[in-house]
Amino acid sequence: MERPGLASSFGTAAAAYAEHRPDYAEAAVRWALERAPGARVLDLGAGTGKLTGTLVALGVDVVAVEPDPAMLAELRRALPTARALSGGAEAIPLPDASVDAVPAGNALHWFDMALAGPEIARVLVPGGVLSGLWNVVDDRVDWVAGLARVAGSAAIGPRDTVGEWRAATAGLLPTGPGSPFGEPERAEFPHGQRRTAESLVATLATRAGVLVLPEPEREAVLDRIRAYLAHRPETASGGFTLPMATGVLRARRR
Rank of each mutant, 00 (worst) to 15 (best):
G11M: 10
T12E: 11
A14D: 07
A14R: 04
A14N: 05
A16E: 15
A18D: 14
E19I: 03
R21F: 03
R21A: 03
P22R: 02
A27E: 15
R35E: 15
P37T: 10
G38M: 04
V41A: 13
L44N: 08
L44E: 05
L51D: 01
T54R: 15
A57D: 15
D68L: 09
A82M: 04
G87M: 00
G88R: 05
P95L: 11
A97G: 13
A97L: 13
S98F: 09
D100L: 04
A101R: 06
V102P: 11
V102F: 09
F111E: 09
D112T: 10
A116I: 12
P118K: 06
G127Y: 09
G127L: 02
G128R: 03
L133Y: 03
W134F: 10
N135C: 03
D139E: 06
D139N: 04
R140W: 06
V141F: 05
A148D: 00
R149H: 12
A151S: 03
I156K: 13
G157F: 00
D160W: 08
D160A: 14
T161L: 08
G163H: 01
W165G: 04
A167H: 02
A168E: 11
A168Y: 13
T169P: 09
G171V: 03
L173E: 01
G176K: 12
E183N: 12
E183I: 01
E185Y: 11
H191R: 02
G192K: 08
A197K: 12
T203F: 14
A208H: 02
G209T: 14
V212C: 07
L213W: 12
P216A: 14
E217M: 11
R218V: 00
R218H: 06
V221R: 05
L222K: 05
D223Q: 15
A227L: 10
H231F: 05
R232N: 07
T235I: 12
A236N: 11
S237E: 15
T241D: 13
G247K: 06
G247F: 01
A251W: 09
R252P: 11
